[in-house]
């Protein structure tokens, strides 16, 4: 008798979610198998990479990460355009770092105005990411939702503590929400249920499982994402059949290993390569766990990951 390769039995499908508006809108999700198991199912929409832009000049970035954006880091609009024009970004992720109550604490109106300028200047989907402070995010993201009405921004993080108010604004002004929970599959499912009960449509929801980079607990994020896909694809768990977004750049680039120079730490090797590889490899690990959207920083790391996606999906 001939040997038959065992196949996973899939009973579910990841929902398709369209991000942004117009002819540069991007659809993610739709998988009918585990990530890149193209011998078992389909990935009709390949994973996408959003390039990170900060709404204030970064103070503590590694030299390696700053260099590609020299001259534009004090202007979010110019920064976003550079990502599109020079690095071929398919999406932009605007990090509202300036609104951090423990940092610059910029007000909602001012922060939202910057979001509007960036949104008006680009035609690709725009992810807008707050600071994970429930009260401040509620204030800022509600304002953002309002003045960017109808642009189908991707707004997050929406957490249990602020999901009602941010979720309601997203529904009212037609945006997509990022449901964010702290590396816990049960809580992720619960928040998706709550957002569904609130009236957020399935087509307007993506999951942020909370991720970290290699060496900093990425295996926990991996396990949770892997289990989400198992539940969604093999257990018909409708509340976990959503695309996954991973805000990975800021996690990788805040680590000591991406910042420290070779003079200080000779055994760690070339600092430039090191940072780029840490970002690229972290992103690749998350792709294998089921990421649909990666928020990344360094153009070279992004190129490496694009190549990886192309190779894994080559027929």
């Amino acid at each position: 008798m001939a040997f038959e390769i065992p196949k996973t039995l899939y009973s579910g499908k990841i929902k398709e979610v369209t991000l942004g508006k117009g002819n540069k809108a991007i659809t993610v999700g739709g998988e009918t198998s585990y990530p890149f198991y193209l011998f078992e199912g389909k990935m009709p929409n390949l994973p996408r990479i959003a390039m990170e832009v900060w709404d204030c000049p970064p103070q503590e970035w590694a030299e390696t990460a700053l260099e590609p954006f020299a001259g534009v880091t004090d202007d979010p609009v110019a920064w976003a355009k550079k990502c599109l024009d020079d690095y071929g970004a398919e999406m932009i992720a605007l990090q509202l770092v300036s609104t951090d109550p423990n940092g610059l604490d910029r007000g909602a109106d001012e922060a939202a105005a910057v979001v509007k300028q960036v949104a008006d200047a680009i035609d690709v989907p725009l992810i807008v990411w707050g600071t994970s402070d429930n009260d401040k995010d509620t204030e800022v993201l509600r304002k953002v939702a309002e003045i960017c009405q109808g642009k189908n921004l991707i707004i997050g993080p929406v957490q249990e503590g602020d999901h009602k108010r941010i979720g309601a604004s997203a529904i009212a002004y037609q945006h997509t929400v990022v449901a964010s929970t702290p590396i816990d599959i049960n809580l992720a499912k619960q928040l998706n249920i709550l957002l569904g009960n609130l009236g957020v449509a399935d087509e307007q929801l993506v999951i942020d499982p909370t991720v970290s980079g290699i060496g900093y607990g990425i295996e926990y994020a991996y396990s949770v994402m892997e289990r989400m896909r198992m539940a969604g694809l093999t257990q018909q768990d409708e509340k976990l059949q959503f695309p996954i977004i991973c805000n990975i750049a800021k996690e990788v680039w805040k680590t000591k290993e991406t910042k420290i120079s070779m003079e200080e730490e000779p055994t760690l090797g070339n600092a430039e390569k090191r940072g780029i590889l840490m970002e690229a490899i972290s992103a690749t690990v998350l792709l294998l766990a089921g990421a649909d959207v990666l928020i990344m920083r360094h153009p070279e790391a992004i190129n490496l990951v694009r190549e990886m996606i192309a190779e894994l999906t080559a027929s």
């Binding site: 599959i185 049960n186 809580l187 499912k189 619960q190 249920i193 709550l194 009960n197 289990r227 539940a231 257990q235 768990d237 509340k239 976990l240």
Partner: peptide
């Protein structure tokens, strides 16, 4: 283990 736990398990 047929259905993943969430606090709203009785409502879905």
């Amino acid at each position: 283990g047929e259905s993943l736990y969430s606090h709203s398990w009785l409502k879905i």
